[in-house]
Design a protein around this nucleic acid. Structure first.
Lengths: 240, 240
DNA sequence: CCAAAAGTGTTTTCGATACACCCATGT
DNA sequence: ACATGGGTGTATCGAAAACACTTTTGG
């Protein structure tokens, strides 16, 4: 009985969201190489955790190795521990190559993170890091597709509980239409843009800037900034 | 470098909530025994997970060993993995006694569960299982106090995202005042009970029964039942 | 001029809150 | 009779939605 307790490796995997110019949610994927498989296969960025490292620290490290950014917002959302999640033959081979160990079972703690899609990606570890539109994610190793599916539900909950993190996905200066497009991409429901505009622009933490759009075939929209300090003081949720 | 990946044990710990007759939230605690410590110390119910077991299965097993109930509602809410969370000397001793192993670090996955407080507790594993009011939880081993504190935030989110699970904490037949007391105990804010009554009784999934209270020094309240099927069909959240 | 989107104002609707009032029961 | 809480109806207020209207820019 007592001999069957698992003694296992633990990893973190990160689902990093970005929002592109075509109003699509994207996630960051890296590539893995297997000598006996011609094509490179994509996967979620992740790593085994180190012996003196907490899971949040490990996720922060993975994000840094992935993007070159020191401190990214992150949120743990679920531990995936199906006994069979790492039983695929290619996955076992890859783990042996990557970690120089025989690993039969591995538990992973999944994290959400957010990144402005125009931010320069400066990976210190991965040679290939690409944005992938959320509706074009290919078949991935382990249970990474499942992790991504569940991350979509979690990112909505996250923004519902703390609206301010939505601005991590937008440029520093953004139009209210951009915020609107992101909001409906996340919530997948229709809202009248005029009412959205009126409401959002009434919040004191949405600061109008002097700049407006240029070279647009219609009246140029104003750029706004988000003020985190004023947000904390206010209690204006987007939707009560 | 690669030698410092952790290879560790993983446990689950369960925070089981109940709601008592004094309108207090309670949680289930068990006792642990240490030969060199005279007093018995309370702790959260939990267990290392087995080699062929997923974390949800392990939590379900712990809950069954704890209460004798086969299928309890449960929800994973967070992985706790601070490298120092199991470094207390007494905790290390206890783990050696409990699991017959030297364990220096242990990662735990915390679960929420809900139980009607009048349900008979029939533990197949623990000799002492007690309800403890949430504001009287003593100092517990490992990071169990931290886990409980975070579980309180999670139970609120859980009920917000799925109102129906609140009925797991109430008797099958309940008065609207009971539901009200539970609701405000969870949300810690005042709501007018008359308006609460009017609103709740308008939901089609709250079914009035024939029974009313007896031996009360005022007009007897009606007992209501919750209809899960009707709830699923409706989209009446308690608060939009 | 037209198309397209920005930005503002007005109206309507709906839900939350407040509150008044009657009902039922034990002391 | 009265205290206590159950249960219902009504008025009011505010936020959200619907929508009309003006503004700005490129083609």
């Amino acid at each position: 009985m007592s001999s069957s307790f698992i003694h296992t490796y633990v990893s973190v995997d990160c689902v990093v969201f970005g929002f592109d110019r075509e109003n699509q949610l994207n996630i960051l994927l890296v590539q893995r190489h297997l000598s006996n498989v011609p094509e490179r296969q994509k996967r979620l960025p992740g790593s085994l955790i180190l012996s003196d490292e907490g899971v949040d620290d490990a996720a922060q490290r993975v994000l840094h190795e992935l993007t070159g950014i020191k401190k990214m917002v992150l949120k743990q959302f679920k531990c995936f521990a199906d006994p069979k999640r790492a039983s695929n033959e290619l996955d076992i081979q890859w783990m042996e190559k990557e970690y120089k160990r025989d690993i039969d079972r591995i538990i992973t703690v999944a994290y959400l993170s957010l990144c402005k899609i125009d931010h320069k990606i400066n990976s210190t570890k991965y040679d290939t890091v690409d944005w992938c539109p959320i509706d074009k994610v290919p078949s991935l190793p382990f249970d990474h597709n499942k992790i991504i599916n569940e991350s979509l539900i979690e990112i909505r909950k996250w923004i519902e509980s703390d609206f301010s993190i939505i601005f991590e996905l937008l440029p520093k200066k953004f139009t209210i239409r951009q915020l609107y497009q992101l909001y409906i991409a996340l919530n997948e429901k229709y809202i009248d843009i005029k009412n959205f505009h009126k409401k959002v622009s009434s919040f004191n933490y949405i600061i109008p800037s002097e700049e407006i759009e240029v070279n647009v075939a219609h009246r140029a929209a104003r750029y706004y900034k988000f003020d985190a300090k004023l947000y904390k003081k206010s209690n204006n949720k987007l939707i009560k």
